[in-house]
Design a protein around this nucleic acid. Structure first.
Lengths: 243, 243
DNA sequence: CCCGGCTTGCCGTCTATACAACTATTCTCC
DNA sequence: GGAGAATAGTTGTATAGACGGCAAGCCGGG
């Protein structure tokens, strides 16, 4: 097991793979120290910087942990820890081979209700843009999206833009701030009568409830709302810790 | 805005922070090119390798994207994408200021039922260890855990170890393979009569259902089961994209 | 016996340099 | 005018060397 410098895959990556295989196959077990950077450098004929690049890649993936002055050690795998990634709706549907779509149910200027005003840090009753949309997978409704967003520019609201664009683009057009980050909270709920009718399922069906706040670069909120995902059509799969 | 080389925070990190501030404050907007590595190197008095370290940190955080031969560009923030991290139960409870605990409901050797046998890649009826536990937060039940795991070593099953140790440690003791990775699927469901009674809530309460498979280093399954988390006590918050 | 200082080994960071690979532009030749 | 070659600019990778800071062991002095 050595490095092929004439290969297309760079040496730092080859070394990372070698070490990963050795860890996964039990050559080095959790808690064991890896050889020092200097020794790996000599053993594989690479400079220490290159070795460090391999190690930092493994450390990012959570396989190893370095301790200054002591050495590098194989981590105990965190088996009861999981990372769930919720991709943007269109991508997620496309990845499953379903045709993504959206149907605009309502888009109008309304006085901000109490909760939306609080979340948007606006006085209650401020004119905000309220949007209700149905997200479709191959024509079938799978999610019901309700959002409030700041309406600062006074630009006209075009039906077709609301129909097809993603929510952040709409915010960017109508709010006087560029949304730079998003904060989401995922909860679980059961659908009420109205929500169930809109999603075309039985009332009492379980669903994911995702509350989303859009923030501008300086942390001011510019959009807020919820999205309900049908529990019978949605699941989150943990991301594998890959190098 | 320049680098203080006598500071305790290393220069690569200072530069990363400077660039992050400039991006978040709109000096560089999504799609804009950043100055080239050579120019940043000259402007801030750092070597190109150090500049690259700053940039790679920003790239990992998703703020920028580099294109070979072309340059480095500010990414459009992926606002409809979220990363949810589910920590190990004890840590999660401790982080919320609740006292974590567990109550063993049942632990015995059973013939593997069809689904468990399939997931563990064993013949139906193979003797496996079946464990049912209640996970507690300050004495109150918040999750109901049911797991099957390989029982290869024939070691005696000790009540107190099952009571307090995390599931992966138990697997390690009784299965002839070290669990190295875990795959989870998160779904949403409503509690049935029995589950609701065990969790001390009303039937029909929504809940998270987490299916978990534990795999050994070579990919063979060594444990499998579900854990139900009370929907009224559990929520997932998206991880901020921090540098 | 204990404590403090020295030494050694290790990781963390930074530098200067070199070459490779890719992109876009400019120039040259037909 | 067009096609292809040369060129400049950019990121990707690798090297050798240097210094700093942390941890642990060793050793001698009290």
């Amino acid at each position: 097991m050595s490095i092929d410098k004439s290969s297309f895959v760079p040496p730092y990556y080859q070394l990372a793979q070698i070490l990963e295989r050795q860890i996964r196959s039990g050559v080095y077990r959790p808690g064991d120290p890896l050889p020092s950077e200097a020794e790996l450098s000599e053993r594989y004929g690479l400079s220490r910087m290159t070795v460090r690049r391999s190690l930092s890649q493994l450390a990012r993936a959570g396989l190893i942990r370095t301790e200054r002055g002591k050495g590098t050690f194989v981590s105990r795998p965190q088996l009861d820890r999981a990372v769930f990634v919720m991709e943007e709706f269109h991508k997620e549907m496309a990845a499953r081979g379903l045709a993504p779509g959206a149907r605009l149910l309502e888009a109008r200027l309304v006085p901000a209700p109490e909760k939306a005003a609080a979340r948007l840090q606006l006085p209650v009753g401020t004119r905000v843009l309220y949007i209700r949309r149905l997200l479709l997978a191959s024509g079938e409704p799978v999610a019901y999206d309700r959002k409030y967003l700041r309406y600062d520019r006074g630009k006209p609201i075009l039906e077709n833009e609301l129909q097809y664009q993603a929510f952040p683009e709409i915010v960017e057009k109508h709010a006087a701030a560029l949304p730079m980050s998003s904060r989401m909270v995922l909860r679980v709920t059961v659908l009420g009568e109205e929500e169930a009718r809109i999603l075309n399922v039985a009332a009492g069906t379980p669903a994911f409830l995702v509350e989303q706040s859009l923030l501008s670069g300086d942390g001011r909120p510019v959009g807020w709302g919820w999205c309900l995902y049908r529990g019978d059509r949605y699941e989150l799969v943990s991301a594998p810790e890959a190098i």
